[in-house]
Write a protein that binds this DNA or RNA. Structure first.
Length: 570
RNA sequence: CGGGGCGUAGCGCAGUUUGGUUAGCGCGCUUGGUUCGGGACCAAGAGGUCGGUGGUUCGAAUCCACUCGCCCCGACCA
């Protein structure tokens, strides 16, 4: 490609709306343009990168025997009603009606459509296993799109679905995907962590996320640097650090005027927040449950949902006042009329703690959990915090922000049973197909690469996903045009993805653009070096440069390029 | 959904508090010339329903009301 003919609208100044590095750089470098909140245009450079990422994904998916197809994005409400997700998706689903007033949805994911296909065609164990996939646009009406293409309302996802006759088969399909995903992300040059995850709306038994640690990430990971334990904080388990010794040896009620939050109680009584136990009221159907966690901990709603059921919700302050006659800040576990008391494991056996007195303006200090509180169940219901002890090796846990780029689920029979996808096994028994589903956010790979690989001058994308592999810059085009034109042609013939910056501009201007866009390699042709039969090859990532004799330039560059593609290292 | 901020030329901004000629600046764009190893210089140009609607006023980018859009934080989320 000759740059003078290309549509590459780079910006000299930072767009004001962009704060995260990937957002700012992708806009500035002319990869993307915003169309509306959470909806982006991929400009030629961005789309080239996307296509390269998709090729890598396609190769690795095909390598595990997966078959590509294309499902509709415009789907009928009927399917979603069958699975129960017409309700479950709520406002996250883009809904519309056709001219006959039928409900439709722009698909946020494709389990239903795939299951619908499977139930028609996969009738016998002889038809199984199958892995089907597509790369297609998904629509999710996010409450708050953010950070450029990191969290958007319309995005391209590679989603695949496995159909097996047995649970062992599902394990195998899952492991195939796990391996394929590792290869895909390796080839895209990303550093990632595989973590245990919550399966959320997807349902199913087991799931893992592929995460890239990045400041701008919205997910939080608990990571043990000693043994490698890693989990999303939604599901991470860890042992809390012990609370300090309590100064309260005797149980007594104390007057705590206008003191209700943990911080307030902590400073009023001059006691560590870890010695205060929060009492929270939840409503589960028509039952009232008191949930207890240490003052320095937070309830994890996902974990709590596993204990109390998905319909559990926190009572509103008004409901609490209405039923117990006390403001939420003073609720406590002693002599309270609830159906059940669920306490976090970390408070089991604590002595001398502070709790609400169920009386306005009062707390009770010196409470002994084991003997004073009728705890019905202890469970892990809190969110892990930095410094907790790793469940495997006991080392301190670190918490990092991360971006999810892939997620693999063992769905089991959730969709096959609700939607009636059954097959007949060897013995003539009718059984539900056992499914898995597996997703990769294609645009997120690009965003994450920009997050990971940039400096003050711009991006330095891995060569496997950069829009072009090599940029040719002439210092003085008039003196070297013949040579450049010849090298350009030969490099293209050698299978290298080259852009030739033939614009009428100063070399410095071209260098700045090249840095911003992040072409991994730059071939600089200057009269000074050409005089000695040399050209210069520069590496974007580390700024290093080497001189190459013109006569062997094409072979040498081809060699370097193929090595870089192999390693995806810079 | 709660809180905060913003909307003036393709991009980045000033002007709005205290209403007053023809709405400015930088970058970019066009033409000509000089430059040419890190976003060159000079000269001459083009480019605006000041987000929208309604109101107040002799007069509105500026004041008032409504409204649309965008960003950030939080809640939520595969």
């Amino acid at each position: 490609m000759k740059w003078s003919k290309a549509f590459i609208p780079t910006l000299k100044e930072d767009p004001k709306e962009a704060e995260t590095p990937s957002h700012r750089l992708l806009l500035r470098a002319g990869y993307v343009r915003q169309h509306q909140s959470g909806v982006y245009i991929f400009l030629p450079l961005g789309w080239r990168s996307m296509l390269k990422i998709m090729s890598i994904i396609r190769e690795e998916m095909d390598a595990i025997g997966a078959q590509e197809m294309l499902l509709p994005a415009l789907t009928s409400a009927k399917l979603w009603e069958e699975s129960g997700r017409w309700e479950a998706f709520g406002d996250d689903m883009f809904r519309l009606k056709d001219r006959k007033d039928h409900d439709m949805a722009l698909a946020p994911t494709h389990e239903e459509v795939m299951t619908d296909l499977a139930r028609v065609y996969l009738r016998s164990y002889r038809d199984l296993p199958q892995i089907w996939y597509q790369m297609q646009t998904k629509f999710r009406d996010e409450p708050r799109p953010r950070a450029g293409i990191l969290r958007v309302r319309e995005f391209i996802m590679k989603d695949s679905y496995s159909f097996d006759a047995t649970w062992e088969g599902l394990d195998k399909s899952y492991d195939l995907h796990r391996e394929a995903y590792m290869k895909i992300f390796d080839r895209c040059g990303l550093k990632y962590t595989i973590v245990k995850a919550s399966s959320g709306l997807m349902g199913g038994s087991q799931s893992e996320e592929f995460m890239v640690v990045a400041q701008s990430g919205e997910d939080r990971l608990a990571i043990c640097e000693n043994c490698g334990y890693a989990a999303n904080v939604e599901v991470a388990e860890a042992t809390a650090q012990p609370a300090p010794e309590s100064p309260f040896s005797k149980k007594e009620k104390v007057y705590t005027p206008d003191v209700r939050s943990v911080e307030e109680v902590s400073s009023f009584l001059n006691v560590s927040p870890a010695l205060i136990v929060k009492s929270l009221l939840y409503v589960v159907g028509d039952r009232w449950v008191l949930v207890m966690v240490r003052g320095d901990h937070e309830v994890n709603e996902a974990k709590l949902a596993k204990v109390l059921g998905p319909e559990a919700r926190m009572a509103t302050p008004d409901e609490v006042l209405d039923r117990f006659g006390v403001p939420v800040g003073f609720v406590g576990p002693l002599d309270i009329d609830v159906d059940e008391i669920v306490a976090d494991k970390a408070i089991e056996g604590m002595k001398g703690v502070v709790v609400g007195a169920n009386e306005e303006e009062h707390h009770i200090v010196g409470v002994d959990i084991d003997s004073d509180v009728k705890v019905n169940r202890y469970a892990d219901i809190r969110t892990v915090v930095e410094g907790d002890r790793c469940p495997n090796c006991g080392s301190p846990i670190k918490i990092s922000n991360a971006i999810e780029i892939g997620h693999i689920f063992k769905l089991g029979t959730k969709y096959s049973e609700s939607m009636g996808a059954y097959f007949t096994d060897k013995d003539g028994n009718r059984k539900p197909i056992i499914m898995g589903s597996y997703g990769i956010g294609v645009g997120r790979i690009l965003a994450v690469a920009a997050e990971l690989y940039h400096d003050e001058n711009g991006m330095s994308l891995p060569i496997t996903i950069a829009p072009y592999e090599l940029d040719i810059i002439e210092i003085d085009p008039k003196k070297t045009s013949e040579l450049t034109s010849d090298l350009y042609r030969k490099l293209l013939e050698a299978g290298i993805d080259v852009i030739w910056d033939d614009r009428e501009a100063t070399a410095g201007f071209k260098f700045k653009d090249a840095d911003l866009i992040g072409y991994p390699l730059r071939l600089v042709i200057s009269p000074r070096k050409v005089k000695d039969d040399l050209v210069e090859l520069q590496f974007r990532r580390d700024g290093s440069r080497i001189d190459i004799p013109i006569s062997s330039a094409v072979e040498k560059i081809a060699e370097i390029v193929s090595e870089m593609r192999e390693k995806a290292s810079r």
